[in-house]
């Protein structure tokens, strides 16, 4: 299981990246993250919503109420222009951390 600090830090970039594929709602976002991480990135379900709301207030994403095929009301989130810019920045920073880590690891085995 991934440490909670890392789970918390990765929430925003993951949400942004998922929403870049198209609009989605809270439950689907959690399920997709769970599936893509093989169940290792496990958020406390309710904690996703404060993150989504903060991102909405910061103007990174926007929300609209819609209906699912089953008729259930849903709040759909989608990316805004500032969200795309934030995603690019996150990507750059996470890539940098990854490349430093990968480089150090490689040196250990040379």
């Amino acid at each position: 299981m991934i440490r909670k600090e890392l789970v918390a830090a990765s929430a925003e970039p993951l949400i942004l990246a998922l929403l870049a594929k198209g609009e989605s709602y809270g439950y689907a976002i959690i399920q997709e993250v769970k599936a893509r991480s093989g169940g290792k990135l496990n958020w406390t379900d309710g904690m996703l919503y404060p993150v989504l709301h903060r991102m909405e207030h910061r103007g990174l994403i926007k929300a609209r109420w819609g209906e699912s095929e089953t008729g259930r009301k849903r709040k759909y989130y989608s990316l805004k222009k500032d969200g795309k810019a934030a995603m690019a920045k996150h990507h750059e920073q996470w890539s940098l951390v990854h490349s430093v880590l990968a480089g150090l690891r490689k040196e250990q085995y040379v």
Binding site: T44, D45, G46, M47, Y49, P50, H53, R54, H57
Partner: peptide, 19 residues
Amino acid sequence: QKIGRPSALQREFQKTITG
């Protein structure tokens, strides 16, 4: 249980109040 404790959720939502 999965959705989380109400008090913990409230604390997180409180942080949403910004600006």
